[in-house]
Computed example of a mutant assay.
Amino acid sequence: MTTAEAYAEFGSREARGVSPTYERLSQAVARDDDLLALLDGVPPAKRQPNLLFGVVRWLGGPVDDPVTFHDFVVTHWPAVEAELLIRATQTNEAGRCAVLLPVLAALPQPLALLEVGASAGLCLYPDRYAYRYGDHQIGSGAPILECAANGLVPPAGVPQVVWRAGLDLNPLDVTDPGDVSWLDALIWPEHAHRRARLRAAAAVAAADPPLLVRGDLVDDLPALAAQAPTDATLVVFHTSVLYQVPLPRRDAFVRLVSELPGHWVANEAPDVLGYDALPEPPDDALYNVLALDGKPLAWARGHGQAMTWFG
């Protein structure tokens, strides 16, 4: 897929109906020869729309108008390029816990959670958030994570978590204002509710910081998993992470995680793990596939806002 095609698809499938600003901007970039030439000069993994838009916002640039966006990127390209090369799309969306909750609550309790690609670790607190599936509310406190769920009997309660740890190439610190500002820049412009959710989830994590380890998802996973208490069910999970991992390393991770004790929960785009047979998705929007131990269970929107259960 060319860079232009990637931006056009992002606009039509991921941003449409979710962020008019990013839908308009991504379609404009797809037709902008100047910006495409600049983007094609950085490694493929650094060309993605979410990363470019987040970097521009973090640098104080405009994203609400394609013309001023173009001018800012061209004028400030050395600074934009430098940030693209050192940063990653570490969107730490606590709302994804609403998609993970039905699986986590059904596993043998208590749980030892280990998140791969944990960013700042906000998804390591599914037991501390509240949830609303239609009229059904679970848990108490803030934030309240809302999810439109079809075909699902909501769980009776939140899981019991006795250990939580994260593995990331560049873990972020929720007590560091600079790291939190990067997470904020990755939230799409219109999503004030997600900004409020980020602040609430960051407060939860800052009050009881998780164990976050800088490391590789293959080389460093066994040692971290070995630290989990043996009287808890180990759950290794990840969401919208593996698409950034080269295929050989992805395959090595799948082999490794399949051999670990406990369970493996994946929430990734349908082509990332290559499932044999999947039902048709609910519509043309971009969906992840929620899976337990390699078995697909549900379609899930990227920020946890909706899921359709089929498992």
Rank of each mutant, 00 (worst) to 15 (best):
G121Y: 01
Y22A: 01
V99H: 01
A142E: 15
Y287T: 05
G95V: 03
D33I: 13
P44D: 13
L183R: 03
A207G: 15
E23M: 11
A82C: 09
A142K: 14
V103N: 00
A6I: 07
L124D: 05
P296L: 05
L198R: 02
E23R: 12
L100N: 04
P270F: 06
E83I: 08
F10H: 09
A226C: 10
A156I: 00
N267V: 01
A6W: 08
L52I: 07
P282K: 02
Y7Q: 08
A228E: 07
H191S: 07
G178T: 14
V63A: 05
E259R: 09
N170L: 15
N150A: 14
G61A: 07
L85D: 09
V204Y: 10
P248T: 12
Y129Q: 02
D34P: 07
A226E: 15
P110R: 00
E81S: 14
S258R: 12
L104K: 01
V162E: 02
E14G: 09
L39I: 10
A37H: 15
V63H: 04
R214F: 11
T233F: 00
D251M: 15
R96M: 05
F69G: 08
Y125G: 02
A196G: 15
A192H: 14
P78S: 03
V204N: 09
F253V: 11
V56Q: 04
L59Y: 12
L167D: 09
L221R: 03
Y22C: 02
V272D: 10
E268F: 02
D71I: 11
R301E: 13
Y133V: 05
L256F: 10
A206Y: 11
R197S: 13
A94G: 03
R132G: 12
T239M: 04
R24Q: 15
G262C: 02
W163K: 05
E190R: 00
A148T: 13
H76P: 04
R57S: 12
D276F: 11
H76G: 06
Y287H: 14
P143H: 06
G95S: 06
E83Y: 11
L260D: 08
T233I: 02
